[in-house]
Simulated scan of single mutants.
Amino acid sequence: MNLVLTGSTSGIGWETLKALMPIADRVFLPVRNIKKAEKMIQHLFQKEKIVLIPMDLSIMAEVKKGAIQILEQCKEIHLLINNAGGMFPAGKKTSEGLDLTFATNHLGPFLLTRELMPALIRGEAKIIHVSSIAHQIATDPSKDFGLLKSANTGTAYGKGKLYNILFSNELKNRFESKGISTYALHPGAVKTAFGSETSLWAKLIIEVSKLIFISPKAGAQTTIFLATTPKSQLRNGGYYIKKKPKTPSPLARNQKLSAALWDYSEAVLKNLGVI
């Protein structure tokens, strides 16, 4: 099995990596900090399976370059886990002029998946998206998909997590006939470094909430379950909590919205000149 996993150097991504290493043949890790990743993996058993790919998911030019590097080394991908994400101050922009929450939580994973699609189709891959129950707080984003007018950190994050589910649904609509299966999940309230780059007020809320948070290892279990369970026992396009399919919000089930988000995402990427 060839695996691509984002967000692997902390939290549930790290626990997911350790759990899946024994069953993977090659593991491609797009990482923002190569030195940190090299230090973390040096004591892993079978670390020779790992290929580190320099990539900041919030910078589309880097995502494009990293995807090309993966495809040069791997013609079939069997499992893609879009795990990376984060909560950032509302209105914070990337060097390409994108909202940071939009770029990191949606557009980067969207571009990576899109670029890897030929190899994903050859591998009849599973694509897993780490979303959140926070998607339920999102209001209709159709007039501001790019979050350029969003002034609230929490609601912007909620829309980013809504996009994970909408993206998963649209992948099913477009690629199920080509052997692709896709899933979104809520990992639980996980005690990680999540939110470390957001506002002081949001940090305070997160720190207080950590009293009831679960461990990263516990939070990774649904991802690992989806990665290792045969497709025949899973619901393609499903949204999972605690290894069980659940019903997401009405917005998350809106097929017109998922198609519109896809079209908007491609338009932004074309404007940036990366597709």
Rank of each mutant, 00 (worst) to 15 (best):
I41H: 06
I41D: 02
I41K: 12
Q42L: 11
Q42E: 11
Q42P: 09
H43E: 15
H43W: 13
L44S: 09
L44I: 13
L44R: 12
F45M: 07
Q46Y: 10
K47P: 03
K47N: 15
K47S: 15
K47V: 13
K47C: 10
K47T: 14
K47H: 12
K49W: 04
K49C: 05
I50V: 13
I50W: 01
I50L: 09
V51L: 09
V51K: 04
V51Y: 09
V51P: 00
V51F: 08
L52Y: 08
L52K: 03
I53D: 00
I53L: 03
P54H: 07
M55C: 14
M55Q: 09
M55I: 13
D56E: 14
D56Y: 09
D56S: 13
D56P: 13
D56A: 12
S58M: 02
S58N: 02
I59K: 07
I59C: 05
M60A: 11
A61M: 09
A61G: 07
E62Y: 02
V63I: 10
V63D: 03
V63Y: 00
V63R: 01
K64E: 10
K64Q: 13
K64H: 12
K64S: 10
K64F: 08
K64D: 12
K65V: 05
K65M: 04
K65T: 11
K65W: 02
K65L: 06
G66L: 03
A67L: 11
A67C: 11
I68N: 11
I68W: 05
I68M: 09
Q69M: 13
Q69L: 13
Q69A: 12
Q69G: 00
E72R: 14
E72W: 06
E72N: 15
E72A: 15
E72D: 15
Q73R: 14
Q73C: 06
Q73W: 07
C74N: 12
C74W: 08
C74Y: 07
C74A: 13
K75S: 15
K75R: 15
K75C: 02
E76S: 15
E76F: 09
I77C: 08
H78E: 12
L79K: 06
L79E: 03
L80Y: 06
L80Q: 05
L80E: 06
I81G: 00
I81E: 02
I81A: 05
I81S: 01
N82Q: 13
N83A: 08
A84I: 04
A84T: 04
A84F: 04
G85T: 07
G85S: 06
G85A: 13
G86A: 06
G86R: 01
G86F: 05
G86C: 06
M87N: 09
M87F: 08
F88Y: 14
F88Q: 00
F88D: 04
P89S: 13
A90S: 12
A90M: 08
G91F: 05
G91C: 04
G91T: 11
K92W: 09
K92N: 10
K92C: 03
K92G: 00
K92R: 14
K92H: 11
K93Y: 08
K93W: 06
K93Q: 15
T94N: 03
T94V: 01
S95Y: 06
S95R: 11
S95D: 11
S95A: 14
E96Q: 15
G97H: 10
G97E: 12
G97N: 10
L98W: 01
L98P: 02
L100I: 12
L100E: 14
T101F: 05
F102Y: 15
F102A: 03
F102V: 00
F102R: 05
A103K: 01
